[in-house]
Simulated assay, not measured.
Amino acid sequence: MTDAALTHHRSLSAQGLTRADVRALERAGELTRIRRGVYQRGPFEAGDGARHRQLVRATWLELGDGAAVSHASAAVLHGLPLLGKAPARVCVTRPEGGHGRADSVLHLRLCPIDAAETVLIGDVLVTSLARTVVDVARESSLDQGVVVADAALRLGLHPAELADAVTRAKRRPGVTRARQVASFADGASQSPGESVSRVRMHQAGLPTPVLQWHLGYDDGRTTESDFGWPELRTLGEFDGKVKYGRLLRPGQTVADVVMAEKQRENRIRRQGWWLVRWGWDDLRDVQAFGRLIREAFANAPKVV
């Protein structure tokens, strides 16, 4: 995310390029339009987040002093996961002066912010990890708030820092949601799917699981599951579409991994445990998800 990769239309004009020339360079892939009047040399990096980072860079160059990239845009820059696509507009917070506004590129908010709540990422001023989590949580769903909070804790954010950021926001809209997110967040959740699964478990009134439960086999080996209910002899795993892909070893196919997972499931059951899996579709309906997990509890071997 460097200035060298960006160029303005006025710079291209100064080089003698006409609008037709610029369009020809775009068709050839030598220029990519980021926003009106700002181009990137070469194609976009792969990924929705990379594109948004360049949009932030292109917009940041035109902002005055005192502004900080915030909310979902700050989450992207910190590497926090978002549910769905990166925002279409750059989210910015300014402590005072002027008015908040939203257009096709920029969403500007006016809100108190001090130096302790900002950090530099590259040379872009961004709200701190804790402030970013609180801002996202205040203005988004519980699911999204927990996803970014869990990820921030995994990145090293201390719970006390998050609690302090919530206290700082005590008179701002949505702080009740932010407080709920902060108290529920757990850095042991290793993916957005696991974070949303925990929310659904809470909403369905299910027992609180142990995260990243290790089960020992009789031969001394162990296996790890996303969730464990030891008193109920039940393990739970969220299986996103990419999970099996991450398990692939050189020379393996997805079918090989699926077979290995079935064999693993059989070993787990021979140890006297039950394994239940679910995906994103199962998380859409709280009650249906609750039934799925309770059926697993009922199928699990009973401790005599």
Rank of each mutant, 00 (worst) to 15 (best):
V134G: 00
A160T: 05
A74F: 02
A163M: 07
E117Q: 12
D164A: 10
R172F: 14
V90N: 01
R109T: 09
A165K: 01
E139N: 10
T167V: 14
H71G: 02
R168T: 04
D114A: 10
G98Y: 07
T176P: 13
K85G: 00
A152I: 14
P81Y: 09
E161C: 06
P112F: 15
V148L: 04
L142M: 15
Q190Y: 10
H71R: 10
V69R: 09
A178H: 07
P81I: 11
D123Y: 11
A67G: 01
V181A: 06
R138V: 13
T93A: 04
H99F: 04
V134I: 11
G145I: 14
E194L: 12
R171Y: 13
A149P: 09
V166S: 00
H107Y: 01
A115Q: 12
R168M: 05
G156A: 14
S189F: 12
S140P: 04
P173Q: 15
S141M: 13
T167D: 08
V105I: 12
D164W: 08
H107S: 00
L155G: 02
D114I: 12
A86H: 00
P87Y: 01
A182D: 05
P112C: 15
V181Y: 03
L120F: 11
V136I: 11
T127F: 11
A149T: 09
G187T: 09
P173I: 15
A152N: 09
L77Q: 06
A165T: 01
G97P: 14
A74C: 06
A137C: 14
T132M: 09
L153P: 01
S140W: 03
G122H: 14
S140H: 06
E117M: 10
V181C: 12
R172W: 15
C91Y: 07
L108N: 01
D103L: 03
G156W: 15
L120I: 07
D135R: 05
S73V: 06
R179Y: 10
L125I: 02
I113N: 02
A185S: 13
H99V: 06
A72C: 10
G98K: 07
H99Q: 13
V90I: 15
L162P: 02
P95N: 03
K170C: 08
D164L: 09
P159E: 00
V181S: 03
D135W: 04
H71L: 12
C91H: 07
V92G: 00
A149K: 08
L77I: 12
V126K: 03
G174R: 15
L80K: 13
A68G: 03
A86E: 00
S191K: 10
E139C: 10
T118D: 00
V148P: 00
S183G: 13
P159C: 07
R179N: 01
V69I: 13
L129C: 02
H71E: 07
A102H: 09
S191H: 10
A116T: 14
P95M: 06
A149V: 13
E139L: 11
P95Q: 05
G98N: 06
E117L: 06
V105W: 01
S73D: 03
R109N: 04
E139P: 05
A185T: 08
A152Q: 06
L142T: 10
